[in-house]
């Protein structure tokens, strides 16, 4: 395991720029998640680190060595692809053993068998070892491709939305499993996703990407509490942060503030200004209120057992709102 540094990395394909001036570091043993919508450059970042693409500018360092011109093999990275990129003509066992049979490693065959069995055990697929790769379900295939990374001891694990094509239950299970594995084995892991829950639950650091730029990097808590722009603020939190013009609550914003961001916990119900209840959603463990507040739609959470009705008018006030300027940047 090792640390990875990206310094001012840029990459463009033909005329479109995919990554612009990206700088961040992954410390040894850290679980870093890159979060962003489709097309933000998440996958490209992974492929650049893996060596499947070469960067146009900047440098990539693994363990203090600049690896810009290294082949993927020389970089010693393991990668899990979004599509299950299994070798279709090989059995699950041979798929898992494939990286170990690299002549670079010269792993003895009994050692290979031991490791393959161990990983199959971890991923709950020991009874599938002799199946052909194409005879597996989607979830099993993705577990095999995660397993193919786990049998190795690479400098870093790269995972490209490995859970996105699985069903909700399996996704939740594997999410916990992956986090546990990473924590137990002290592996360095860079994980790409557009799912904020995956990011919040697994990451020790989150990098938020927007159109090829890294817009904020920090711990999940820090990014949630101190987003540096409306874009970042909107990426985390369910229901989404409410953005309103500032001054509606009579609050005193700093110089230049033109918008305020209110997460559900920033909205206090019971006193303040009038808001109209449009819809009440009972989700069981919580209740969502959709409000009309001076021409603006708001969503907030209240106690699950409260019995507000549609059409009622309630009073709300803002508690510690986040202030943003007209362009969406945070001001404090």
């Amino acid at each position: 395991m090792a640390e990875v540094q990206l310094k001012n990395v840029s990459k463009s394909f033909a005329d479109t720029s995919a990554i612009t001036d990206m700088t961040f570091g992954i410390d040894d043993g850290e679980f870093v998640v890159l979060l962003g919508p489709t097309g933000a450059g998440k996958t490209t970042t992974l492929r650049l680190i893996a060596g499947l693409e070469n960067c146009d500018a900047g440098s990539i360092e693994i363990d203090g060595t600049v690896v810009n011109h290294y082949t993927p093999a020389q970089r010693n990275v393991a990668m899990v692809f979004q599509q299950y990129s299994l070798y279709p003509h090989l059995s699950v066992r041979d798929n898992l053993a494939f990286p170990l049979r690299s002549p670079i490693l010269k792993t003895p065959e009994d050692e290979i068998t031991r490791k393959v069995n161990e990983v199959a055990e971890i991923l709950h697929i020991p009874n599938k070892l002799d199946n052909k790769a194409t005879e597996l379900s989607g979830g099993e295939m993705q577990r095999v491709s995660i397993g193919r990374a786990l049998v190795r001891d690479p400098a870093i694990f790269l995972m490209d939305e490995p859970l996105s094509s699985l069903d909700a239950k399996l996704r939740a299970d594997l999410r916990v499993e992956l986090k546990r594995l990473q924590a137990e084995m002290k592996k360095t892991l860079l994980y790409v996703t557009h799912d904020q829950i995956e990011a919040m639950t697994m990451a020790s650091q989150i990098g938020v990407l927007d159109e090829g730029r890294l817009v904020q990097f920090g711990t999940p808590r820090d990014i949630y509490q101190n987003p540096n722009s409306t874009y970042v603020a909107a990426r985390l939190g369910q229901p989404r942060i409410n953005l309103l013009p500032s001054g509606l609550f009579g609050e005193n914003g700093p110089q230049g503030a033109s918008q305020i961001g209110l997460r559900p916990e920033n909205i206090e119900v019971g006193k303040g200004r009038d808001a109209h209840i449009l819809r009440v959603e009972h989700l069981g463990d919580q209740t969502r209120l959709h409000l009309k507040f001076v021409e603006h739609d708001l969503v907030t959470l209240i106690d699950a057992h409260s019995d507000y009705q549609e059409g009622e008018t309630i009073q709300i006030s803002a508690v510690d709102p986040l202030f943003f300027d007209a362009a969406g940047s945070r001001i404090s």
Partner: peptide, 13 residues
């Protein structure tokens, strides 16, 4: 192509 990419990552010559 991705099969070759996977093999590349798996350090197959």
């Amino acid at each position: 192509d991705y099969i070759y990419e996977a093999a590349e990552i798996d350090r197959a010559s």
